[in-house]
Design a protein around this nucleic acid. Structure first.
Lengths: 202, 202, 202, 202
DNA sequence: AATGAATGAGCCTTCATTCAT
DNA sequence: CATGAATGAAGGCTCATTCAT
């Protein structure tokens, strides 16, 4: 037995993370409400009590899921636009990212919007995560828009364009999920290109 | 007893309709999954068996709900744009309607998109109702766009604009629900106006 | 098959009553809190849901138990004093009853006081049953005392004696349960006799 | 580090005592069965294992609670009668003490009788504490009665009176807890006075 | 001593559906 | 058509206790 790092467990994933990982998959694929604690602990191979020693409640697990998802998804998003040379190119690239991500996730769509749909209470902890996530995404679009339109448009106008691109992004996301077809992304991208380039040209 | 209007029975509301009406309210406010049969029959004041003599299953009730909702919501939509004198005006009016409807429903949003979010199976009966509803709405936007842009744009371009307006509508809908604030509708309306009028001007 | 009353089921005990009967035994023997719904339904041979179609909640079952117990126990009490020729004799007979009942129930004591002990919340539905039961028992002692002392004592004094006999009864009950020995009943009876007869003599 | 009082450790409260103190409050207020280990360790700010290194089991903690409670309550009792000049006065003073104590504890009543009620097994360790406590209290009443009635009554008669006063005390205790009203103490005190003084007079 | 993850049986309650009446 | 008792799996969560660290 030379070292613990040899074969089987190179730091065997802290149990809490394993639970979160399994739950994340199930919440995303089936929905938060449709996923029971039992399924999570069965797939994790642990006892009920073990689960509750790691998470106060199912809702707290839901919050942890959305927080982790926020980091993960933002990572994908930023990575996808990182190499683009300008803010305009980055804005356009978001729609390429949208298309490939939605195909990859089998059109299950946005974990946050799906959660919002089954969480009517606006003040619930999970809804706060949803709002925070979308707020940040909206701000990201605005920041890119401000950068791109800075020298040709007044700030208010640039902000409006950032919001429009955000809404096109969200609309395309939701309708691609709905139709299981990426035509909405294509439509949005075409319009986005027009907005981004036309303004430059005028 | 020749006619139902004869004596004892002023046909108040057929029981099936009453159940559907109550269920519709609950499904919309709380979500389909979060609403139990028990609550429905309790509020309707009927027995379990009575419910199942009217509806095969909860899912069938869900389908009936979405079908009725489709008719109702489309009625609101058409009514809201009926008086506008041109297709362009009608397209713009859809955003006014969106704003007032979302405020009226306490930002609970779209019954169809909410249902989609908690129904991962694309082939399920309820998802079919969702897809059908959004398909028709999209076609409505295209039809109006074709009418409005008919003489100044090629058909493909008009269709693209119809789809863009649809995506702006859907994006604004979803984000107004999310933020409990109508700024997204305002953003979408401003852009919609630009698209509708600018094209006319160019 | 001549009649349903022949052999097996002469009105087979309504299921609700059977549940109540089983639960009553378990609540009394083990305590309300220490008895789980599972044990009740297992002994009744029914499903969880069946239980909940008969009783709203465990607490409601508890209330039903105490109400039934009130009727049963009062029946025993009244039966035990029924044949005595005078109010004084009846008052004395309550202590004979107390002794034989406590031995019969294996010194498990009073269902109501036991329930009170594990129900700190004074306003809870089960506590209300306890208070009502003891109130009525107290009033029974007072009524007998008024009858017995009517012509030799002012009313207030007769009431005081009724209450004293009630407290002796309750004290003896509780301490016989505690010690698993009926000496407290004996002590109480001797004192009761003195109070009942001495007053007559003075 | 010769003595524990040296530097860092002003020995605030030994941890075991702190646990016991917290548990005592919770057991008394909520009942033994209704109080979970988790609540105790949470309020004590310690870990599960720490708890079990101080107490073998919940039941052993229960025993420790009752032993400590015995000492505490007896202290209150003795303190309350200490200044009275005679055994007769002391006997009477027990009812004054009863009244003020029951009001102070918010009518939660006697920890021992409450525990008895939820502990059907007569031979269990906790029941032994209950029996021991009540035995000693009964003996205390007898001792005072013997002292008070010594020269006017035969011993057996004095003992009987001691037991009667004990039963009145217990009955008043239990019914004051039940009714959340001290009338039972008042009734018992009036009778006690009569017994104590009348015998002296006869 | 002290930690807190792990256990597994148990808590009370609700689920959608069926079926004998 | 209507009733509501019956099902059995599942819901989220707590229980007292153990044990490797």
């Amino acid at each position: 037995m030379p070292a613990a790092s040899a074969n089987s467990n190179p730091t065997p994933i802290p149990k809490r993370d394993e639970i979160l990982q399994i739950a994340s998959r199930l919440f995303y694929e089936q929905g938060f409400g449709a996923t029971g604690i039992k399924q999570i602990i069965d797939e994790a191979g642990i006892a009920k009590g073990t689960f509750y020693s790691h998470f106060q409640s199912k809702e707290q697990l839901g919050v942890a899921w959305l927080r982790a998802r926020h980091a993960t998804w933002n990572g994908w998003f930023e990575e996808a636009i990182r190499n683009r040379k300008s803010a305009g190119k980055k804005l356009l690239a978001t729609f390429d990212f949208l298309e490939s991500w939605l195909a990859d996730c089998n059109y299950r769509g946005c974990a946050f919007l799906n959660t919002m749909a089954e969480t009517p209470d606006f003040d619930s902890p999970m809804r706060e995560e949803v709002t925070a996530h979308k707020n940040q995404l909206h701000e990201r679009f605005q920041k890119l828009a401000l950068e791109h339109f800075a020298d040709q448009e007044p700030e208010a106008s640039a902000r409006q364009l950032g919001s429009v691109l955000f809404l096109l992004f969200e609309g395309a996301l939701v309708e691609t999920q709905n139709f299981h077809d990426t035509w909405p992304v294509e439509v949005a991208r075409v319009q986005a290109k027009k907005l981004i380039e036309q303004e430059s040209a005028s």
